[in-house]
């Protein structure tokens, strides 16, 4: 048994090394004084300064945040409503509709991108940040729907009945009982949608017009231009941001669990 654990642990650590080494290497070399090679030539913060002063990069970041914010907001409002509606009134064919709504999560990103490109060109909507936001909402909405629906399905329907029995109207029962219990799922969905939107390259690539450069588009063009320590610095920052997001979501989950340990 101990031997078994031993090589399991070894394999697992090997896995982690595989997952982390590339990211760690990027981060380390973002401090490299040399501009071209992977040879270590001393410590510098120069590339972070270059990055911070890169106006195009900052604009791209702003665009990304704007798109992520708006698309997440729309997707959350629509997705939560749809999840509640699907849970409450299982009309004929609601399973088929639900299945169809999850299609965007399954079909290849490239396909979704070109389909939207085609659509916008044919209905003559000029490509811009607006079209990007619309596209992002189209893949964020099913994401929110799936997460919130899963949580709704596990909620005890008797809790809402108990509220009704204690004098709550249907709306009060939803507002005072169901919604607070859905909060962890909604926050999780928002976080997920926001991250996916911030990270998305493929769909954005096809639906963004000139001037509508988001951060991933900018990173892509930088990579295409060639390897530079500035990308390393940017990468290190992005890794840090994703770590912070995870830490935050975990902290949120922990307080939630302390407050509503019933949860599942």
């Amino acid at each position: 048994m101990t031997k078994r654990r031993g090589w399991l642990l070894g394999l697992s650590l090997g896995n982690l090394l595989f997952l982390y080494l590339p990211i760690a290497v990027l981060a380390v070399f973002s401090f490299n004084a040399s501009s071209m090679t992977a040879q270590w030539q001393g410590m510098t913060l120069h590339w972070y300064r270059v990055m911070a002063e890169d106006a195009a990069l900052l604009t791209a970041l702003q665009n990304s945040l704007l798109v992520a914010l708006v698309s997440t907001a729309i997707a959350t409002v629509l997705g939560v409503s749809a999840a509640v509606s699907l849970e409450r009134s299982p009309f004929r064919g609601h399973r088929a509709i639900e299945g169809a709504l999850l299609l965007p999560l399954v079909i290849p990103e490239v396909m979704m991108g070109v389909a939207l490109l085609l659509f916008f060109v044919i209905v003559k909507v000029p490509l811009s940040l607006v079209t990007v936001t619309i596209a992002h909402t189209a893949f964020n909405l099913p994401l929110v729907l799936v997460i919130v629906r899963a949580r709704l399905r596990r909620l005890d329907p008797r809790l809402e009945e108990a509220a009704r029995d204690l004098g709550a109207t249907p709306w009060q029962a939803f507002r005072r009982v169901t919604l607070p219990l859905l909060k962890p799922a909604i926050v999780g969905a928002v976080l997920m949608a926001f991250t996916v939107s911030l990270d998305d390259f493929v769909v954005t690539f096809f639906t963004a017009g000139p001037g509508a450069t988001t951060l991933p588009l900018k990173v892509y063009s930088m990579i295409k231009t060639g390897v530079s320590p500035e990308i390393n610095a940017l990468s290190a920052v992005l890794v840090l941001i994703s770590m912070a997001l995870i830490a935050w979501s975990l902290m949120f989950q922990r307080t939630q669990r302390r407050m509503y340990p019933f949860g599942h």
């Binding site: 997952l19 982390y20 590339p22 990211i23 290497v25 990027l26 070399f29 992977a38 991250t195 911030l198 990270d199 390259f201 991933p216 990173v219 892509y220 990579i223 390897v227 990308i231 390393n232 940017l234 990468s235 992005l238 890794v239 994703s242 770590m243 997001l245 995870i246």
Partner: peptide, 16 residues
């Protein structure tokens, strides 16, 4: 953590 990290960045790491 890698799962939440930008896909382009993770791919770029291998170019590097």
């Amino acid at each position: 953590i890698p799962f939440w990290t930008n896909f382009l960045v993770r791919t770029y790491a291998w170019i590097f």
